[in-house]
Amino acid sequence: MLNINDVTKVFNRGNINEKVALNSLSLHLAPGDVVAVIGSNGAGKSTLLNIAAGVFPIDKGEIILEEMPVQKDAEHIRAAYIGRVFQDPALGTAASMTIEENLILALKRGQKLRLWPGTGKERRELFRRRLEPLGLGLENRLATKVGLLSGGQRQALTVIMATIVPPKLLLLDEHTAALDPKTGKAVLELSEQIIAEEQLTTLMVTHNMEQALRVGNRTIMMHEGRIILDINGEERKDMQVSDLLQMFERASGKSLVNDRMLLSS
């Protein structure tokens, strides 16, 4: 499905601020894999998502999505088969445009845009159908500007937008971290439900250890641009957060806990 082979990414090469964000990293995802990515700040989690999405080019290695090498494709080309939800709810939607207009653009992800209005009865029905299960009443507010919605509503809308055309790969970048716990939980449940229904292959970065063990079928832990732990199957089932922390210390020789993790677990 997704094969990231021996990928290296260095920022500010040759500069005093040189930073090896990914160090010969390899990762293979089977179809339907839902992988939680954890690690301390600066471990390379977000960089991993960004090189998968094509936000910046890689220095070495290859990225293969369903047999196709994509490492040379620009972000907007890869977007045809990759759905993304960002940490900041403001990043996933256009504030000055209506819910319907945002959804139209999401529905056309990776397709040629027409010089004709994107509205229509059929599409409106589809949008209502997709928004209704959220229980937020957004299905009756299609003409409302997204800027008037709350952060949680916007993030829920972003999840719908990222999956309204089922992507081959879904990237979730700490997408509940900026929300209050209750809203975050609701958005996470919504994401899990859609992932299960559409059997989406997913990479989810999180700072929440509970989440990392409970969501999906596999947990990987990153440290200094490498994957130091890859846990799945039986081993993962009975694992506790404390076990995970111990494993990290053994594998990296450092303590994983930082303020955000203490607060979020």
């Binding site: 999405a53 620009a74 972000e75 907007h76 080309i77 977007a79 045809a80 990759i82 993304r84 960002f86 403001a90 990043l91 996933g92 939607t93 256009a94 504030a95 000055s96 445009m97 207009e101 945002n102 139209i104 653009l105 999401a106 056309k108 992800r109 990776g110 397709q111 845009l113 027409r114 010089l115 004709w116 209005p117 994107g118 509205t119 937008m161």
Partner: peptide, 28 residues
């Protein structure tokens, strides 16, 4: 009319949120 066509929506979204519209596959 133009700003409500699909292409026009993409132009508006480019001015509003470039990162979002790129992640939706539009060449900004």
């Amino acid at each position: 009319f133009f700003l409500q066509t699909e292409l026009g929506l993409a132009v508006r979204a480019t001015g509003d949120n470039e990162q979002m519209i790129r992640s939706l596959g539009i060449n900004t």
